[in-house]
Amino acid sequence: MGFVGWPSFFRRASWRRLQTIAIAVLLLLPIGAGSALAAPNSPSAASTAHVYLLRGVLNIFSLGLDDIAVKLRAQGIPVTVANFASWSSLADEAAAGYKSGRIKTIILVGHSSGATALPDMVAKLDQLGAPVKLAIGLDSVFRTSLSGRVGRYINFYIANGAGTPVAKTGQFQGKLENVNVQGVPGVGHMSIEKNQIMQQKVISEIDAVVFGRSAPASGTQKPRQPRAASAAGPGSASTAAVR
């Protein structure tokens, strides 16, 4: 009986070792799977988005956009920084990428003259069949009007400075928000894109679109036109102040 028991003992001991190894492997599998699936903020999750940053005149007054570009690229978001005069060719480039499937989310940001060019770029992209998901203007220097499709258009402007609100036409489809940021500390026409508070607002709005995060409130909003601000459907527009 003792002779027969030893093989049995070794078989049981080997089985226990196999069980231990199997349990260890199973415990590791969810960790690996979770790492592969997690990832709304991994570079792969952002690879199909593209942000176009339009500088103002002479490329020397909108260098804060370069800082924003660095922060976006650090999150794996593809970025193009160019002068506002290139908006038409950039629209062609973005539309080609959208139609090929390489770009699924088009985001536009412009400062000064770059913000003034945004409505034209939005309209052209719509004509090319490549709708803009998000557009952010930083203190457009001329009064502009919107047409075409855009998921959300945010116009940050300084009411007591050079900036003006953006108007919408009957051909506009989307949501327009005019936000007065004159109460933001240190903000000015030449510094709005360099201001750390404003940079964080821009990046947070982009992250909300690209990664599906909740964008933080832009500040205490006091609608100057309650009736217009209450509209939230397609083609709606609102005017607010940020303190």
Rank of each mutant, 00 (worst) to 15 (best):
I203V: 14
A39V: 15
A46D: 03
V51P: 00
R55H: 04
A167L: 14
D207A: 12
M121C: 14
M121A: 13
A69K: 05
G170S: 06
Q196K: 08
P185M: 14
L29M: 14
Q225N: 15
S100Y: 07
S191M: 10
R149L: 08
P7M: 01
L26V: 12
Q199A: 09
L176M: 05
A123T: 04
W15R: 14
A241T: 11
S218P: 05
K201H: 15
L176W: 01
V132E: 02
A74Q: 15
A215D: 10
V81A: 12
R55Q: 13
P43H: 09
E93S: 06
L125Q: 02
K175Q: 10
I68Q: 08
S8M: 11
V109A: 14
S113K: 07
G64V: 01
K168A: 04
V122M: 04
I197Y: 15
V150Y: 00
V210K: 00
I197S: 13
R227C: 11
A241C: 09
G64F: 04
A46H: 13
G233Y: 07
D92V: 06
F156T: 06
R55Y: 03
S89C: 09
V25W: 12
H189L: 11
N155I: 06
Q196T: 10
G110E: 02
V181P: 01
L28W: 08
I158G: 03
V181Q: 01
S218G: 12
D120L: 13
G148V: 05
I154D: 02
S238G: 12
Q196N: 10
A232R: 06
L118N: 02
V209T: 11
S47P: 06
A69Y: 09
L72T: 02
F10S: 02
G174D: 00
H50N: 06
Q182M: 09
R12K: 07
A22T: 13
Q127I: 02
L63E: 11
F156D: 05
G183C: 08
S89T: 15
L176D: 12
G183W: 01
L176P: 00
V4Q: 05
P43V: 08
G235F: 04
A215V: 09
G161V: 03
I197R: 12
S214D: 14
I68W: 00
I21S: 02
R55C: 08
L134T: 06
K175D: 08
I136A: 12
R11Q: 15
G186E: 04
V141G: 15
D120Q: 13
A208H: 01
Y157Q: 04
G212A: 03
S89P: 04
N155H: 04
G76M: 11
T220R: 13
L29N: 11
R243G: 13
D120Y: 08
A237N: 06
G235E: 00
Q75M: 13
G170P: 01
L28Y: 13
L29F: 15
G163Y: 01
A91V: 00
S42I: 04
A24Q: 12
R224Q: 11
A24D: 03
I203D: 07
A13Q: 11
L128Q: 05
A208T: 04
V179M: 08
L90E: 04
G170L: 09
R73V: 10
T20E: 09
W6R: 15
A208K: 00
G2N: 15
G151E: 02
